[in-house]
Amino acid sequence: MFYSRTIHDLVDIKEIWLEPAVPQYKRGQEILDRFPDAKLIEVPSHWKIPSLHGFHGAVENWLKIKRNVLILGVKKSLSCRPNSRSSNFISPSESNGCTMSCAYCYVPRRKGYANPITLFVNIEQIMGYLERHAKKQGPKTLPDAVDPLYWVYEIGENGDCSADAALCDNIKDLMNLFKRIPNAKLTFATKFINRDMLAYDPQGKTRIRFSLMPHKLSKLVDVRTTSISDRIDAMNDYTAAGYEVNVNFSPVIYYEGWEADWKDLFTELDDKLDARTRQQLTCEIIFLTHNEHLHEVNMGWHPRAEELLWVPALQEFKYSETGGRNVRYKRGLKAALVRTLVEMVHRRLPYCNIRYAF
């Protein structure tokens, strides 16, 4: 099966910004060897690159930075945070940032502006920490909404693991790790089809969540991602390759005609999914949360998206834990929208469980 977008369409690395210790790590040297013609720029910290992070002028070169810049660093803080939705724990990141550029993504507002991919080269340390953490948990004796059998670790909170896997072996190494951890599995969401991952043999210990939304909406806000139809077309292949395949209906954005577009998406899913994929299909439903600062940034490079993302008449402010002003649909409106989409899933995809909807 042919997928139209490859990693070569997304990245052409011209510059690598790297911390001084990066070449001392095997993974760091492997990545540097892969891009021998890239200009190397040493920086004291992957977090502190003034011309990339928090630099207003970077807005004008948003997509160029995503395509041409790679950052390499050493992950300093290794810790797992408890979670209760898509996973039981949020793993230490193996990367931060993304080569894709979804207009609603929360990562740019945390790290600043274009935020290209940062790969962490101390993958052995990250893996050692995860193995020890999982061992401390012991067997999962009480099933929960996340998984009935395994402790589930989210490894893709700050990026897209499928794109990362096209640049280095961090994801393959993590998948191999979880194959041998008896009480745990890993999970990540993706908007990119990386066909090489079909050969990774996850043996049911990787849950991949394909993020989906109506086609015309995706074309506007899912910038530089694999098309929705190509994502759906890949789902049976991933199931056959040993993945647990789930879907994220995310973010759900309200606009005139939204229900008809979601019905069309559900029809396409129902037409294309085989019996094996249907049998284990679970979805997560997440309505749009946007951010005032990100809205201002987006106005500098993609104002058309903001016509749907920033609609003050329909939204209310909510302050984040870090003090940022986020917006979400007004409480009464959102409750009605959630009910509508949940009922639509039950009716049109009756075999699809709903892990959560909010």
Rank of each mutant, 00 (worst) to 15 (best):
N68Q: 14
L52T: 10
L78I: 14
A38V: 05
H56M: 12
E60P: 07
H46V: 11
R81E: 06
K75G: 14
V11A: 02
W47H: 15
I65W: 07
H46R: 12
P108R: 10
V43L: 07
P23K: 01
D33I: 00
I31D: 04
R85P: 00
A38E: 02
Y104H: 00
E42T: 08
V11E: 01
I41F: 04
Y25V: 12
C80S: 10
I31K: 10
L72H: 03
F55T: 06
V69K: 07
P20D: 10
L32E: 04
L18Q: 08
L40P: 02
L18S: 07
H46Y: 14
L10Y: 00
N61K: 14
R34P: 01
R85H: 03
M100K: 02
G73K: 10
R34C: 02
F55C: 09
C80P: 02
H56K: 13
P50I: 07
L52I: 14
W47Y: 15
L63D: 07
H56R: 14
K76F: 13
L63R: 04
P92N: 12
G57A: 11
K76M: 15
C80N: 06
R34V: 01
I71Y: 05
G97S: 09
L18M: 12
L78W: 15
L78Q: 14
N96A: 15
L18F: 04
E42N: 02
S84W: 03
I65C: 09
V11S: 01
N96T: 15
G54H: 11
F89H: 05
L63I: 00
V43E: 09
C102V: 08
K48M: 13
K76V: 15
E15L: 11
P44Y: 11
R67E: 01
S45R: 14
L78S: 14
I31V: 12
L72K: 04
S77Q: 15
K76T: 15
F35K: 01
S91V: 05
K48V: 13
P50K: 08
L10Q: 01
C98I: 03
I16A: 06
R85W: 03
V11H: 02
L32G: 08
C105A: 10
Y106L: 07
E42I: 07
L72T: 07
P44Q: 13
K76Y: 14
S84E: 04
L32M: 08
P50G: 09
N61G: 13
L40W: 04
A58K: 09
P36R: 04
G97Y: 05
G57D: 13
P50C: 09
K48P: 09
V69W: 04
I16N: 09
G28E: 05
K66F: 02
D12W: 06
A103F: 00
E42P: 03
Y25W: 14
K75V: 13
I16L: 06
H53N: 10
R27Y: 11
E30I: 03
P20S: 11
V69G: 03
V43S: 07
